[in-house]
């Protein structure tokens, strides 16, 4: 069976799953926790925007129909 250590999120720093940083605790990069979370949130959203723009086709109807043809049960 897997050990607990292997159940940590792959991108989590040590102990991040057990003891989240206090929101206002200074971090090693010189910012504060809230600022770091905000930056990460912005990065998440702008990455999502780019990813969506990158995948939307000019023919949604055709794309959805094409996928539908492999419909499940």
């Amino acid at each position: 069976m897997d050990t607990p250590e292997r159940h940590r999120p792959v991108n989590a720093p040590p102990d991040a799953t057990d003891a989240p940083d206090a929101p206002d605790a200074p971090d090693a990069q010189g910012g504060d926790g809230l600022e770091r979370m905000r930056r990460r949130g912005d990065e998440f959203l702008s990455a999502g925007d780019s990813a969506i723009e990158g995948v939307l086709s000019s023919d949604s109807v055709g794309f959805l129909k094409h996928v539908r043809q492999t419909g499940g049960q």
């Binding site: 969506i52 995948v55 939307l56 949604s60 794309f63 959805l64 996928v67």
Partner: peptide, 8 residues
């Protein structure tokens, strides 16, 4: 339709 496509 575009939202449905995004979902896929």
């Amino acid at each position: 339709r575009q939202l449905h496509e995004i979902d896929v």
